[in-house]
C-alpha cells in the first residue's frame, strides 16, 4: 500500500504556485475559479496518484486543463455589450502585481502559456510541449520571446518601482 500525505499539505505546499500559474494564464479575476477547479479535481484523483509522481507538475497540468475549460465556458457565455466592464482588481494585489498581469496578458497566448507553465509552474520545456503541442525547442523559443518582451514591458516597471522603494 502506498502512503500519501494528507491533501491539506499538498494545498499548503503548491497552492501559491498553482495560483500564480492560473493568474498568468487567465488574469487575476478568473484565476480563482481555475484554482478551485484544479484543487477540487486533484482532491478527487489524489488517492490514485502514483507515489513517485511530481505533484507540482501534476497540479500544473490539471490547471492547464481547467484554464482551457474556463476559457471555453467564458467564450460560450460571452454576449456583446456596448460598454466593456472594468476589470475588478483582486483584493490584496498591489499595483506592481497588476502591472505584471497586464504585461502577461499582452503576450501572445503561446508565449504566456510557456511563461506560466515553465517559469512559474516549473514544468520542463518538454512537458510544456506535451501540453501545448509542438516541440520542446519551439516552447523554449516562445518562452524566450515572452521573457524578452516582459523584460521590456514589466521588467522596466518593476525595477523602477524597486528603485523607488529603496529611496
Amino acid at each position: 500500500m502506498t502512503v500519501q500525505e494528507p491533501f491539506e499539505l499538498v494545498v499548503a505546499r503548491h497552492g501559491g504556485t498553482v495560483l500564480r500559474v492560473c493568474r498568468a494564464v487567465l488574469g487575476p479575476v478568473d484565476a480563482d475559479d481555475a484554482w478551485s477547479a484544479t484543487f477540487l479535481s486533484a482532491l478527487v484523483a489524489y488517492p490514485q496518484l502514483a507515489p513517485d509522481s511530481n505533484v507540482e507538475a501534476w497540479l500544473v497540468t490539471i490547471a492547464h486543463r481547467k484554464a482551457i475549460d474556463h476559457t471555453r465556458a467564458t467564450s460560450r457565455r460571452a454576449v456583446p455589450v456596448d460598454v466593456l466592464p472594468e476589470r475588478a482588481a483582486s483584493p490584496g494585489a498591489d499595483a506592481r502585481d497588476l502591472d505584471l498581469w497586464s504585461a502577461l496578458a499582452a503576450l501572445p497566448t503561446k508565449q504566456r502559456q510557456v511563461v506560466a507553465y515553465h517559469h512559474l509552474g516549473g514544468l520542463a520545456y518538454a512537458q510544456v510541449a506535451d501540453l501545448l503541442g509542438g516541440t520542446a525547442v519551439a516552447a523554449r523559443r516562445a518562452g524566450a520571446d515572452g521573457i524578452a518582451t516582459l523584460r521590456r514591458t514589466y521588467g522596466a516597471t518593476a525595477s523602477a518601482s524597486n528603485s523607488r522603494r529603496q529611496q
Partner: peptide, 26 residues
C-alpha cells in the same frame, strides 16, 4: 523538473513579484 534550463533571474523576478497574498490563499 529540469531546473537547469530555468533562468533563475527571470524566475525570481516573476515569482517574487507574482506572490499571491496569503489572504487570497486562505
Amino acid at each position: 523538473m529540469t531546473s537547469t534550463d530555468l533562468d533563475p533571474e527571470v524566475r525570481d523576478l516573476l515569482v517574487t513579484a507574482a506572490h499571491p497574498a496569503d489572504l487570497d490563499l486562505a
